[in-house]
């Protein structure tokens, strides 16, 4: 599913004439199989979010290659990556990233609109997804009218509505209480089992890391460990 080969990234800081290079990732290589839940753990500043952003195509790597579903996405331009994201990836963010002026229904419907799906089909798919995340009675609610857990469910529904084979999650439980966190982790495991969706989850939470089939540990931009989380 995902092949990361010799991936390095550094940020350039400072002003013109006084630039300094800050390395955040160095020679990262790993492979994620289809249907796996892989968690990436590490302390703050270890480079885990940068790694996820590189895989998502939000930033471009300084060196190395990223292959997802046999496509060398690290060579894609912005438009190609956008189309790839829409087709193959779903995202779950720590602070949900819902559009505040849109209802739960409209937020979930957004990827379907971007893909150009007909209004009738969209309506059906969105309602199904709302049911799946248990929010069928909240379709007309705006994000500000939903609890943190409900917002994250809307975010998950939005990520799943196009049935992507890969979901990237950045601290998905970071804004949730422990009870909601448990529900969410259970839901992720169900989706993985039932739909065979591959999950790549960034976390510093041990409980989240525990649901992974495999855990990759990063420290100071380097991959220090890969195996079953203990």
């Amino acid at each position: 599913m995902i092949d990361i080969n010799q991936l390095s990234h550094h940020f350039t800081l400072g002003k013109k004439g006084d630039l300094t290079s800050l390395s955040v990732l160095e020679n990262i290589s790993f492979h994620v199989r289809a249907g796996e839940i892989v968690t990436i753990v590490g302390r703050s500043g270890s480079g885990k979010s940068t790694l996820l952003n590189l895989i998502s195509g939000f930033i471009r790597p300084t060196q190395g290659e990223i292959i997802i579903q046999d496509q060398k996405v690290s060579e894609f331009d912005e438009s190609e990556f956008a189309a790839f994201r829409l087709q193959h990836m779903g995202f779950i963010f720590q602070n949900f990233q819902l559009i505040p002026s849109m209802t739960a229904f409209q937020n979930i419907e957004l990827p379907l609109i971007l893909k150009g799906i007909s209004e009738q089909a969209r309506k059906k798919m969105t309602i199904e997804m709302l049911k799946k995340v248990g929010l069928e009675n909240f379709s007309g609610h705006y994000p500000s009218e939903l609890s943190g857990g409900q917002q994250q469910r809307v975010s998950i529904a939005r990520a799943l509505v196009l049935e992507p084979p890969l979901i990237l999650a950045d601290e998905p439980t970071g804004s949730l209480d422990s009870e909601t966190e448990e529900d969410l982790l259970r839901f992720i495991q169900e989706l993985n089992k039932e739909m065979g969706i591959t999950f790549l989850i960034i976390t510093h939470d041990d409980e989240v890391a525990g649901i992974g089939h495999r855990t990759i540990t990063l420290a100071d931009g380097k991959m220090v460990e890969s195996g079953v989380f203990s």
């Binding site: 998502s56 939000f58 912005e78 438009s79 956008a82 189309a83 994201r85 829409l86 087709q87 990836m89 995202f91 990233q97 819902l98 559009i99 002026s101 957004l110 990827p111 971007l114 893909k115 939005r158």
Partner: peptide, 15 residues
């Protein structure tokens, strides 16, 4: 922020 979210989930710059 909305544009950022749209781009993140797959809206192309052209759209």
């Amino acid at each position: 922020p909305d544009i950022g979210i749209m781009k993140a989930i797959g809206a192309s710059p052209k759209v």
